[in-house]
Nucleic acid binder design. Structure first.
Length: 559
DNA sequence: AAACCTTTGAAGCGA
DNA sequence: TCGCTTCAAAGGTTT
């Protein structure tokens, strides 16, 4: 991984990758950056097809095959964009969440109404039309903030904000804040979600320190209800409510979170309208689904200290084993997952593709095409998610969820040949074809950046954009990248360095299907170089979040 | 009905 | 420290 902080790349991950990236990036950056973003979808689709058909073909040949294509239009994208621009404008005009403009965070972030980590029942897709919010930074200094957060709804705030949003109008960052609410169940929220957090060890309720709270977690049920929806200003262009808020108004399942200046700025700058899964059956008495849902398969906190008695009492159905009663605490979403949640709806809207596997491939490519700065946002969000998660569930371990799912058995073991996969995938890919034409996906929201790193800072700060572009051009078919190594960009964030993997994931080593090793030639040179420009840009964009801490790029060596 | 597929990233564990 | 495994989301597909 490139040593962003000026190192000599001492800590870089796969050096070879870096080098490759640099080389290719330099060569193709100019020619590719303008077209790649717009072609990503097409590329992916074609890649899906090509890969299945030509899985054995060399990447070089495919690269050669790759040719610039003009995208018919990006109307839908523009629409969405316009919509959000309008929404943002209104929002800013609204005043409540008025905030400074952060280029890096031109989005409106809405606090999540529910906890993404407690899994419970399932929510029908159709129900996922409610606005879900997460509060941005809640680092309220002092207890006053917390107190305020729990206090009755401010008079100037209204919780009667329509939150129903069309899926296609999901803001790009929606996923970041839109944790699935599918696991909500009616009933009393677990104690750990109540305003007071029980100390896992002592079992004594404690008031979480503001710093402990992630901006993306909703306030506790008690406090949440008091908080008006930040998107009250957000209404569809047609005047029809895009969002609907349950009678009870918004309720935040998480411990009291206070909003302070920084938070408000985040709210305004990072909140975005997004869909909220809102299963009627799981609605909290307030009308808002409670995040803490206990599903049969749900796993409870190791100590159970964080689970309120009511939570246990509300276990649906006949008594089950204790294990079954345990709430299943989901893993915090990583950056890519956040990105996926955000962009999935958009990709689906742009394409007729419905299969998640295909969508994910597209998303994976898009992810790589994101600028470093954009990715950094997600990494930062993910980091905060993890931080909050660890605070909410101190005793939780990723290990706790092991075995919850059926062990994935990939047949593509040693004996499986690439052909086997290609055949199998080919079939799937073929299915995608029909929609391909409909998928003339407009440039992604990120596309604009990619298309025109107008400003030096953008260009410098967004090396990834070009990089992705390169990779796409160079390796249009490399839907699956088997990382041969990892590079991490570490973006120091308050209290913790943020690692931004620029290489491919080393995980799922068993996933080689349809894969063509991602050429690390796609890596952008800037990744290797000192990050100062990016650092500055990142700092600027994350100013609100970091609130002071300069971004220093730290590279983690994976070699 | 459950697992699979697919993506990247984080975490855990064994060597 | 490295490499591998598992899980996180999502929803159509497959078993």
């Amino acid at each position: 991984m490139p040593q962003l902080n000026g190192g000599g790349g001492d800590d870089l991950g796969a050096n070879d990758e870096m080098i490759s990236f640099k080389d290719e990036g330099e060569q193709e950056e100019k020619i590719s950056e303008n077209v790649s973003a717009e072609r990503d979808l097409d590329d992916v689709k074609s890649s899906l097809v090509n890969e299945s058909e030509n899985n054995s073909s060399s990447s070089d040949s495919e690269q050669a095959e790759r040719r610039p294509q003009t995208r018919p239009d990006s109307e839908s994208y523009e629409k969405t964009r316009d919509y959000f621009s309008e929404a943002l404008r209104r929002h800013q005009d609204g005043g409540f969440f008025k905030s400074p403009h952060y280029p890096g965070y031109p989005f409106l972030m809405i606090p999540d109404l529910t906890s993404p980590y407690i899994s419970n029942g399932s929510l029908s897709p159709s129900a996922r039309t409610y606005l879900q919010m997460k509060w941005p930074l809640l680092d309220v200094p002092g207890s006053a903030g917390l107190k305020d957060s729990r206090s009755p709804t401010p008079g100037h705030l209204s919780n009667k904000v329509p939150v129903v949003q069309h899926a296609h109008h999901v803001h790009p960052l929606t996923p970041l804040i839109t944790y699935s609410n599918e696991h909500f169940s009616p009933g009393t929220p677990p104690s750990h979600l109540s305003p007071e957090i029980l100390d896992p060890k002592s079992g004594i309720p404690r008031t979480p320190h503001p710093s402990e709270l992630s901006p993306y977690y909703p306030l506790s049920p008690g406090a949440v209800g008091q908080i008006p929806h930040p998107l009250g200003w957000l209404v569809p262009p047609q005047g029809q409510p895009m969002y609907s808020i349950p009678p009870g108004g918004f309720r935040h399942p998480y411990p009291a979170l206070a909003m302070n200046a920084s938070m408000s700025s985040l709210v305004s700058s990072r909140f975005s309208p997004h869909m909220v899964t809102h299963p009627p059956h799981s609605l909290h008495q307030t009308g808002i689904p409670h995040p803490a849902i206990v599903s049969p398969a749900i796993k409870q906190e190791p100590s159970g200290d964080n689970i309120s008695p009511s939570m246990h009492a509300k276990s649906p159905g006949p008594p089950k084993k204790e294990e079954d009663k345990k709430p299943h605490i989901k893993k915090p979403l990583n950056a890519f997952m956040l990105y996926m949640k955000e962009m999935r709806a958009k990709v689906v809207a742009e394409c007729t593709l419905k299969e998640s596997a295909a969508i994910n491939q597209i998303l994976g490519r898009r992810w790589h095409s994101l600028s470093r700065e954009e990715q950094a946002k997600y990494y930062e969000l993910a980091r905060k998610e993890r931080q909050l998660h660890s605070q909410l569930y101190p005793g939780w371990s990723a290990r706790d969820n092991y075995g919850k799912r059926k062990k994935r058995k990939r047949d593509n073991k040693p004996d499986s040949t690439p052909e086997d996969f290609s055949i199998r995938n080919k079939k799937q890919c073929v299915q995608y074809l029909p929609s391909e034409k409909m998928c003339d996906s407009p440039a992604s929201s990120h596309g604009s950046m990619l298309d025109s790193p107008a400003t030096p800072s953008a260009a410098l700060a967004s090396p990834a954009a070009p990089a992705a572009t390169h990779s796409e051009q160079a390796q249009p078919l490399s839907l699956t990248t088997k990382p041969e190594g990892r590079m991490h960009h570490h973006f120091p964030v308050p209290g913790k360095a943020m690692s931004i993997p620029v290489g491919t994931s080393g995980s799922q080593s068993t996933t080689p299907i349809l894969t063509r090793p991602i050429p690390f030639t796609s890596l952008h040179p800037s990744m290797l170089s000192p990050p100062s420009p990016f650092h500055q840009a990142a700092l600027h964009s994350h100013h609100a979040l970091f609130q002071s801490q300069p971004l220093s790029l730290v590279t983690k060596s994976t070699d």
